[in-house]
Design a protein around this nucleic acid. Sequence first.
DNA 1: ATGGTTACCATACGCCTGTATTATGTCATG
DNA 2: CATGACATAATACAGGCGTATGGTAACCAT
Lengths: 200, 200
Amino acid sequence: MPKLVDHQERRETIARALWRVVDQHGWTRATMREVAREAGVSLGHLQHYFTSRTGLLTFAMELAAEQTGDRVTRGLAALDQPPHPRDVLRLVLAEMLPLRPEARASSRMSAAYVLEALHDPALRKQAGLGLRDGRAMVERLIRQAITQGQIAPDRDPDIETDLIVALTGFTPLLELEVIEPHAALAAIDQHLDRLFAEAS
Amino acid sequence: MPKLVDHQERRETIARALWRVVDQHGWTRATMREVAREAGVSLGHLQHYFTSRTGLLTFAMELAAEQTGDRVTRGLAALDQPPHPRDVLRLVLAEMLPLRPEARASSRMSAAYVLEALHDPALRKQAGLGLRDGRAMVERLIRQAITQGQIAPDRDPDIETDLIVALTGFTPLLELEVIEPHAALAAIDQHLDRLFAEAS
DNA sequence: ATGGTTACCATACGCCTGTATTATGTCATG
DNA sequence: CATGACATAATACAGGCGTATGGTAACCAT
């Protein structure tokens, strides 16, 4: 047996270097050489852990999704137990938007990933599944809130779900500084307040 | 004087070829050679009308924005005169989302453009201005509707504007077929109905 | 201690990129 | 009709890209 290294850890280190490159210089400059430079390793080293560029990108993307999930999970712990679904939705949206630096990197990653996925069947499938899962989670929350009387029963769960998920449309507005983070949060709060207004 | 050609027309033809490439194969494959091939001209020909790639991209982007504006203008003509602001907003949103093939190309163009703009000061300024203009137009509509009693006066115009603009967040959901066009339109209608519910 | 497996690195290959250069055709005018 | 401006084209160049290859160093089991 040779020298022992934690493969998963090495791959995560490299993936994080990729995030930084994407965050600072954009998806197009996320080349093997640039990522290796950012990670402080040689091109050969990087190749040892990621044979292909596509493999690196998908791995980094999955890791970013996990990371976002972890941020949400951590945020949930800070809420009342059990948390009000309104607060859960607010937290999820807040973590998906580029409001803080860490979230910004993930946000830029997934934006570029989606764009690339449109023309690559394999990526498309994965990206589609991810989005579908996210939407399904929101829908579950909303249906449950309706059942529990926190949302008025005359609200259509599908439509309300879509409206919530669509609020990720704040991303370009935030990125190009058309609106400030507090404005995005205010709008989200307003929307959620109305959704949960008429009951509980 | 030499042979006479309409420069603007030639540039538009090439820009449209760029749209097709971006629409079908993605921003990354929108190279000078690929666009020339799609346009059915030589690389030299393309270079004669666009010295640099950046120039081509910005021109094509501006043209796409104009085109979207024209679609909205044409749609306005089909509405009641004067049109109800609710219908205007619905039309604008519908034309910005990738619901029909022509709109899809423009949508993909601007998505890629915004992503590229994040890391290029010049593009960033232009993209920011475009988005700001769009938001300002929506805000004007909403403030006017409040003044005219079509929207309840206790609604905050800034927040309502942001919520409307954020509905462009349906784009990735539509692109990855997480939701169907009719669902996006239903959600938009629901949101607008509520916004315009309490008056007029 | 030695063999074999793994980590790591430098370099090379073929391809594609944006752009520059140069040549040729094509026309309206002096 | 010749001349000069423009349209179009072909080719060249330097650089960056993903990936493949070969070699060296480090380590553990035997």
